[in-house]
Amino acid sequence: MPIILAMETKTMKKVLFLIPFVGILVGGPAVNGIHMLVLDMPFIMFWLFLWFFLTPIITYQIYRMDEKEKAVVK
């Protein structure tokens, strides 16, 4: 059971890691067709702006998982 849990965390971390890459590299081009201003920014610029804040939230989640793992190892 602990092994399965550990594997899940590992996969989870990989998925979390990939989210901002997909969000920016694929999401950016994908929303390029939306022509409107949000907060005075063209939509794609606004979309990229969101990731300044979403990325730290995600990295922090990875950090928390790492810390938990460390605590378990100890």
Binding site: P20, F21, I24, G28, L48, F52, T55, T59
Partner: peptide, 10 residues
Amino acid sequence: ALSYGVLAYL
């Protein structure tokens, strides 16, 4: 320029 730094830190 808005985006590469963000991903670089991750």
